[in-house]
């Protein structure tokens, strides 16, 4: 058991850069028996063993730029996208890079931190760390948090499939957790993302994130999944996180391997979007754009 240098709950830590730097080292050690995501595969990534994400000891980045497509309160954001993910969503909009942790460029902490800092100085409001899935690259994600100004607003864009071990190391580092809740039932999650026990894991992460940081939940509306997925997600959020901000995204794009699934070969219809919005209204959800 490794002692954490500092733990906090429900607030951003003081001296974030220093704490993040210390935790990055701890996270690096944990790659020898990786349990950063909820697959808990336990492989030794430092010895090139591969689990479901296929990630090794180092990270790569496939995009680093200012973007304005995220939530209005977060943009412009300087978004740093790390290659590789622990889920296998057939419809992943960045599947080529998200399914391949070897895609993109070497993760250069100083270069990326310089770009991010420059972006902040020129109008960016936030820095977003995303993927793929950044949880599987926790050592480098913490390393870049350590290289950024203490007052920078940091966003953790995640699939909410991390482990308790990962959450402990993330506590107090990121100001906002921007978390996906993709599937309202485990059958859809297993079929479309090859992930078991999805709802149990995601709900645990969302409840934790809401207690430990600001939380925004995203749901990508999928064609044919208004009832089985969105309705169930909306109901759970209304019951357990009634005040949380929710971004219901209707621009489903049949990307990557979506065409393998008959239900995902098109886009969401305007009728489906209208019905989804009615559900949100009925549950009195706090929608944001």
């Amino acid at each position: 058991m490794i002692a954490l240098p500092e733990t906090v709950s429900g607030k951003r830590i003081a001296h974030r850069a220093q704490v993040a730097s210390e935790r990055a080292l701890i996270a690096r050690q944990k790659l020898s028996c990786c349990n950063l995501c909820a697959h808990h595969c336990g492989v030794n990534r430092l010895q090139a063993e591969q689990g479901p994400c296929h990630a090794g000891p180092t990270s790569r980045v496939f995009s680093a730029q200012i973007e304005v497509s995220d939530e209005l309160e977060l943009i412009p954001t300087f978004a740093i996208a790390l290659s590789g993910c622990d889920l296998r969503c057939s419809f992943c909009i960045t599947g080529k890079e998200s399914w391949n942790p070897h895609a993109g460029e070497r993760f250069d902490v100083k270069g990326l931190a310089d770009q991010a800092t420059h972006a902040l100085e020129n109008g960016a409001r936030t820095i977003m760390i995303l993927g793929g899935e950044p949880t599987i690259h926790l050592p480098d994600a913490l390393a870049i948090a350590a290289a950024l100004p203490d007052d920078a607003k940091l966003i953790w864009k995640t699939n909410a499939h991390g482990s308790a071990e990962a959450r402990e190391l993330l506590d107090g580092i990121f100001d906002v957790w921007l978390a996906d809740y993709k599937f309202g039932n485990d059958a859809c999650a297993q079929r479309l993302a090859l992930v078991p026990h999805y709802n149990e894991v995601v709900r645990e992460n969302l409840l934790w994130a809401n207690d430990h940081s600001e939380l925004i939940v995203r749901h990508l509306l999928m064609p044919g999944h208004v009832d089985c997925c969105w309705q169930a997600v909306a109901q759970w959020l209304a019951e357990h996180l009634p005040q949380v901000k929710i971004n219901l995204r209707s621009g489903f794009w049949p990307a990557w391997q979506a065409r393998k699934h008959a239900d995902l070969r098109g886009t969401t219809s305007s009728l489906e979007t209208e019905r989804a919005l009615r559900i949100a209204h009925d549950y009195n959800l706090c929608l944001v754009e």
Binding site: I66, I75, E105, Q115, H118, N122, E289
Partner: peptide
Amino acid sequence: QGMQQRAAQTARQPDSNLRQHEHPT
């Protein structure tokens, strides 16, 4: 209107000399 709002949120991309090099994929 949504895109108008987003377009109004401007920030300057980092200078090219701060960018990383070519994207191999």
